[in-house]
């Protein structure tokens, strides 16, 4: 029973980080219909900026704020300068551009900050809580992680539902022409969308880094599993991103915990789950549009 609780908690903590990353991908997809493969290295870049600040003596919280702000700036800049020229064209070109960004940013991080493993601190403890005599893998840090993601999601929901800016962004994503006719500056909304998505991505990068090692490629597995989570949930649906992330996190944790030598099977398990979901619903679990024909 203990073991089951441990494995479940580990799965939920991991899964919520996948959800955060998947959410960032969904935000960008909804606004520009591009999958941003560079999301992970953009997040890694802001994490390294935070690390540099911490190593220079700043507190974790200052570094966190700076990282999120620089994430916003980076996301907006990327959309305006690099993505804008390819937005109307074939989607494959946009994919290649984001792949190029992914590679270039990761290499730039290695050149500027070095490739070695560095420890990234967390402001809270790393010892598991004692519950009834045994220790569960829930640490103060994991509570912080879960809490931050939930708060961020609540803020985003509030933004989209209850503010004019949020309404304008949803309008631009839904129908550009109509939004323009109504006076919405569509271009600005897209830039804002990328900026916000980058903030969410940066947050997930910082959360996964805390209490562990960072190196230029440390986000790579999160990119893959976050993307899979987004697809499982349906790229159009933020709720789907969250659900997909949790499902993936839990499933992978059970595979890791209960299957003999399960850690080798984790990526296979992700593949199987994805195929099963897509066979049943080719648009993901929460997809709303049925398949369109040319």
């Amino acid at each position: 029973m203990d073991y089951f609780v441990n494995v479940t908690i580990t799965g939920l903590t991991q899964g919520i980080i996948y959800s955060a990353f998947a959410l960032a991908l969904v935000l960008i997809w909804r606004s520009t219909r591009i999958v941003n493969f560079a999301q992970g290295s953009m997040a890694a870049a802001t994490t390294f900026i935070a690390l540099a600040l911490i190593q220079a003596g700043q507190s974790y919280w200052v570094a966190l704020v700076v990282a999120l702000v620089s994430g916003f700036v980076l996301g907006a800049l990327v959309e305006r300068v690099i993505i804008r020229p390819v937005e109307g064209g074939p989607e494959l070109n946009a994919v290649i551009v984001t792949l190029g960004l992914f590679v270039a940013i990761q290499a730039l991080i290695a050149i500027i900050f070095g490739s070695s493993f560095q420890s990234f601190p967390t402001p809270f403890g790393v010892r598991g809580f004692q519950v009834g005599g045994s220790t569960i893998p829930l640490t103060p840090t994991s509570l912080y992680v879960i809490g931050s993601v939930l708060i961020t999601m609540a803020l985003l929901v509030a933004l989209f539902r209850f503010t004019r800016v949020g309404l304008a962004m949803r309008a631009s994503a839904f129908s550009q022409e109509v939004a323009r006719l109504l006076g919405v500056k569509v271009g600005g909304m897209l830039t804002l969308g990328w900026g916000l998505a980058a903030v969410v991505g940066s947050l997930s990068g910082l959360l996964i880094a805390g209490g562990g090692f960072v190196y230029p490629a440390y986000m790579d597995s999160l990119i893959v599993f976050g993307f899979v989570a987004a697809i499982i949930g349906g790229l159009d649906s933020p709720v789907g991103a969250i659900v997909g992330g949790l499902i993936l996190g839990l499933a992978l944790s059970y595979v890791n915990g209960y299957v003999e030598r399960g850690s080798a099977l984790v990526s296979v398990a992700a593949l199987v789950i994805l195929i099963v979901v897509l066979l049943v619903r080719p648009g993901g679990l929460f997809s709303s549009t049925t398949a369109r024909r040319a």
Binding site: W29, V224, A230, I231, L235, S267, A270, L271, I275
Partner: peptide
């Protein structure tokens, strides 16, 4: 499996394949 999928969904499925199949070699 992929014939029914389009665009990013196909990309995602093949991405999972790229990462998953080598895992079988390790297992």
């Amino acid at each position: 499996a992929a014939a029914r999928l389009h665009g990013p969904y196909l990309a995602g499925a093949t991405l999972a394949l790229a990462v998953g199949l080598p895992g079988l070699a390790i297992y």
